[in-house]
């Protein structure tokens, strides 16, 4: 269901303290998202590409992930230039293409790719469980962190239960169609899933109580610092400062 194809690796990026990676990916995304100047946006995408190459990820897998956002971008290129702004830039037949529309589309495209690439290279190279602990170290409220970790742990169990129920239904000759019987069956299935999820959460809570849980979670993870940390910190700080400087002066 959830696979983490990028989490295991031994590149320079993988060796950097995950806290720094999350922190800088977030800062970088904010600055990129708020920028409008093209030099800044081109700088952003260049930096993202550099980080991406440093992470040594499987390019094809990354391209496949980017394809998701590409769909949106194509849609934006189809709609914005012909609907946004008044002054015509050029004409395709009788349709006028506006300059502000083209500029906005280009900005959105550059921003989305830059942010996505940075996140893929910096954050999706962290395994999910580590990410949870990183977030708690970065003072994200514990409830949210554990909601995330528990969801990650049990989404698989719930999926298994769902496929088991569906299989059982299919084995008794259920084939989905466009009729009330199908809708009812699916409604029962989902309802059953909710009931089971609630019962399971009760049992998990009981199991936690039995092991001395008193409402506080402790973490055994520690993060070590290395020279790669300094490299990333310095590099990203400079990049972000330059971007801010270019944009707002």
């Amino acid at each position: 269901m959830i696979c983490e194809p990028f989490a295991n690796g031994n590149s320079l990026i993988h060796r950097i303290d995950p806290r720094l990676r999350v922190l800088f990916a977030t800062l970088f995304s904010f600055v990129t998202a708020l920028s409008r100047q093209f030099p800044v946006l081109f700088a952003a995408i260049t930096v993202s590409l550099v980080i991406f190459f440093l992470a040594g990820l499987n390019s094809w897998a990354v391209v496949k992930r980017l394809a998701v956002i590409s769909g949106f971008n194509i849609l934006i290129w189809m709609i914005l230039p012909v609907t946004f702004g008044k002054e015509p830039f050029f004409y395709i037949g009788s349709i006028s293409v506006s300059m502000p529309g083209v500029i906005l589309s280009a900005q959105i495209t550059l921003k989305s790719y830059a942010i996505l690439l940075a996140f893929i290279s910096l954050v999706s190279t962290i395994s999910f469980s580590t990410l949870g602990h990183v977030l708690s170290r970065l003072y994200i409220p514990e409830r949210i962190v554990y909601l995330l970790l528990m969801a990650y742990r049990y989404v698989f169990v719930i999926e298994q239960e769902y496929s088991r129920l569906l299989k059982a239904a299919k084995l008794r000759g259920f084939c989905p169609g466009t009729n009330l019987h199908t809708y009812r069956t699916y409604a029962y299935l989902v309802g059953m899933l909710f009931v089971r999820a609630i019962m399971r959460s009760d049992r998990v809570h009981q199991a936690m109580l039995c092991r001395g849980f008193c409402g506080k979670f402790y973490s055994i993870n520690r993060f070590s610092s290395s020279r790669a940390d300094w490299f990333l910190s310095l590099f990203m700080t400079v990049v972000i400062f330059v971007m801010v400087f270019l944009e707002w002066t």
Binding site: R153, V204, A207, G212, F213
Partner: peptide, 26 residues
């Protein structure tokens, strides 16, 4: 110590070490 019928109820941490360490930490 109570061992539950369904191990999935008992193991809720992402990794084995974290799960085993949960009790002692508590």
């Amino acid at each position: 110590g109570l061992l539950f019928q369904d191990a999935d109820d008992q193991l809720f941490s992402p990794t084995v070490l974290e799960d085993v360490a949960f009790g002692p930490l508590n």
